[in-house]
């Protein structure tokens, strides 16, 4: 049972795999990245940076996918990261177009200036 945890996820080929980095490490990092993206999205007022933080979240997710791919030695993880990339790109395009549009209206990038839809 314990062997699963300790099997290392080092790279197969050169350089020589370092046995002790387990799946958990990568998951922690990806979770941390995801959460930082979330915090960034919630706290930063500049719209572009907000979208940038969503990109960071994508990044976190991608890392987790790759880690699991590596753990199961399947290539699915990586294909998904490709799709993540593709979606991120699409999202970036759309988002930035929108930001430009909004910027033209209000002369500022702050998300605070758009609050007509309130009760």
């Amino acid at each position: 049972m314990d062997s699963i945890l300790s099997t290392s996820l080092a790279q197969l080929a050169f350089p020589e795999a370092v046995p002790t980095i387990t799946l958990a490490h990568y998951l922690f990092v990806s979770a941390a990245m995801f959460v930082m993206g979330l915090i960034g999205f919630m706290t930063r007022k500049n719209m572009i940076i907000m979208f940038l933080c969503t990109e960071l979240m994508f990044q976190g997710a991608g890392l987790a996918l790759i880690a699991f791919g590596r753990h199961h030695l399947g290539a699915d993880g990586q294909t998904f990261v490709i799709f993540v990339l593709c979606v991120a790109a699409a999202e970036a395009a759309m988002a930035l177009a929108l930001v430009v549009l909004l910027f033209r209206h209000r002369e500022s990038l702050s998300s605070q200036s758009w609050k007509e839809l309130n009760g």
């Binding site: 999205f41 919630m42 609050k115 309130n118």
Partner: peptide, 10 residues
């Protein structure tokens, strides 16, 4: 609670 600010909802 319905303040209209996007990040508030987030």
């Amino acid at each position: 609670s319905q303040s209209g600010v996007l990040q508030g909802y987030a």
